[in-house]
């Protein structure tokens, strides 16, 4: 029996915690330097010097989740856009201690919103560092409500799980058997 594959994208600037998060929620993790990276990632390998993450989570005999880490810089938006076809949703990691990344995140978030209707969870990493900007200030820069940004330290397994759980719950919520039936 052929396995179904569900895709989840993890995007964010260099050093925002993508690899760490993917490691915690995958059974197997690869980078684009591995030989057996998927064809989907292989097409991008020559185009970027950053390593692209790829993780697999086995759900059961008939379902695998593929987690793709894509670099969160505006010049790589095309990658996110290509990989997002058929994906369930995106986790957008923002390094709270990197002012340049936060500024760029605004443009990227706007791009995601304008080019896709996919559920997106925003998570601010490195909130434990003294140089971190507050969630409120990041929310203001991005133009979203403070409650819609989660604080996450991907080095903690429970935090990594929490973000994926929040994304899945958002997906279900948007798909829920709706009020229209009653």
């Amino acid at each position: 029996m052929k396995k179904e594959i569900a895709k989840i994208l993890i995007t964010g600037p260099f050093n925002s915690g993508k690899s760490t998060l993917i490691e915690f929620v995958s059974d197997e993790q690869h980078t684009s330097n591995d030989v057996e990276t998927t064809d989907e990632l292989a097409q991008f390998k020559a185009l970027t010097t950053v390593s692209l993450d790829f993780g697999v989570l086995h759900v059961d005999d008939t379902l695998d989740v593929h987690l793709f880490g894509t670099p969160g810089q505006a010049r790589f938006n095309f990658m996110w856009q290509t990989l997002s076809k058929g994906a369930l949703g995106t986790v957008f990691l923002i390094d709270s201690s990197n002012q340049r990344a936060i500024d760029e995140a605004k443009q990227m978030y706007q791009f995601y919103r304008e080019t896709s209707t996919m559920p997106i969870i925003i998570a601010a990493t490195k909130q434990d560092l003294s140089s971190a900007q507050s969630l409120a200030s990041i929310a203001t820069t991005l133009g979203v409500a403070e409650e819609s940004i989660l604080s996450c330290n991907p080095c903690l397994k429970d935090d990594s799980k929490k973000v994926i759980i929040a994304l899945l719950e958002l997906i279900i919520k948007e798909e829920s058997v709706s009020e229209a039936f009653f």
């Binding site: 059961d60 397994k157 759980i165 899945l168 997906i171 279900i172 798909e175």
Partner: peptide, 16 residues
């Protein structure tokens, strides 16, 4: 199908 798949992943991820 989408919420079905998301629910299955959710159950799995809670056990990670």
């Amino acid at each position: 199908q989408t919420s079905n798949i998301a629910l299955r992943i959710l159950e799995r991820i809670r056990k990670v």
